[in-house]
């Protein structure tokens, strides 16, 4: 589904401040994979997403989706099949517009023409879909999104992203800015939607337990490389302790607990 071959990303290349954030990365994500990604700050997780979504272009290497080389495609072109959700709940919705307008905008991807698609049928469809969130949003279609809480906005963004039927969905710590209760609601919804629509998903998380509990493959990144890659049966047997032990084995560093590791 997604193939990254020999990807490098160097910031400020050719200057004294040159910094390699991704080092010769090779990665192959299969269709219907649900990959969780962990790693400390500066490990290159978000850069990896930026490279996949086209927000950044690699210094070396190629990005392919399906059989197509998309290395030089602009972000908006790739967005036709990639759905990305950010940590900041404000980035997924337009706050000065109503719920129904927001849902209409994201309902279909690609350039829009002078057609009025928001009608009674669409509204009742949106209402029905919003019921799944169990947040009472189905009665607030005409309200501006700015009136919703962060958790509600992120849940709405998630639903909107799923309804736009992307082939790949990138979740960039999408629950990190929420309070624990809302974070777990949004995480449960995420797992439910991914299963329902069998979406190919990559999820960055700062929560090791989430990374272990969800998905069928786990990547740990450090210093711009994937240092741990666990799949299938082996992943099911993972625990936080095992994961830290694996990390220490590889990096020969001593870490007391995951707090230090992920600080």
């Amino acid at each position: 589904m997604i193939q990254l071959s020999n990807i490098s990303k160097i910031f400020n290349g050719g200057t004294h401040n040159a910094k390699t954030v991704i080092k010769g990365l090779n990665l192959n994500i299969e269709k219907n994979d649900f990959v969780t990604i962990i790693g400390s700050n500066g490990a290159g997780k978000t850069t990896l997403f930026n490279l996949i979504s086209g927000n950044m272009f690699p210094t070396n290497g190629t990005v392919s989706v399906g059989d197509k080389d998309v290395t030089d495609d602009a972000e908006y072109k790739r967005a036709k099949y990639i759905g990305r959700i950010f940590q900041d709940p404000l980035l997924g919705t337009a706050s000065t517009m109503t719920l129904e307008d927001n849902m209409m905008i994201t309902y279909k991807k690609g350039f829009k023409w002078l057609k009025i698609s928001l009608n009674r049928k669409k509204r009742s469809f949106f209402k029905k879909e919003l019921l799944q969130l169990n947040m009472g949003l189905e009665n607030r279609l005409k309200e501006n999104v700015s009136l919703l809480s962060g958790g509600q906005r992120q849940a709405l963004t998630l639903l909107m992203t799923v309804l736009s039927k992307p082939e790949i969905i990138l979740l960039d710590e999408h629950t990190a800015a929420l309070d624990p209760r809302n974070a777990s609601i949004v995480m449960d919804l995420t797992a439910k939607f991914i299963e329902q629509h069998s979406l190919t998903t990559m999820m960055i998380t700062h929560n090791m337990q989430h990374a272990i509990d969800y998905g069928n493959r786990l990547l740990m990144m450090d210093g711009g490389e994937v240092i741990i890659d666990v799949k299938g049966e082996k992943k099911k047997q993972l625990t936080v302790e095992k994961l830290i032990a694996m990390f220490n084995d590889i990096r020969k560093k001593d870490f007391e607990n995951d707090e230090v590791l992920l600080a």
């Binding site: 908006y76 967005a79 036709k80 404000l90 919705t93 307008d101 023409w113 002078l114 057609k115 698609s117």
Partner: peptide
């Protein structure tokens, strides 16, 4: 015009450009 699918995008563009990019629109 502002009620058409295209018109709605203008509202989103002024509010949140990333959202427009995410819809596959330049």
């Amino acid at each position: 015009f502002f009620h058409t699918d295209m018109g709605l995008i203008f509202g989103a563009l002024g509010d949140n450009q990333q959202m427009v990019v995410n819809q596959g629109i330049s």
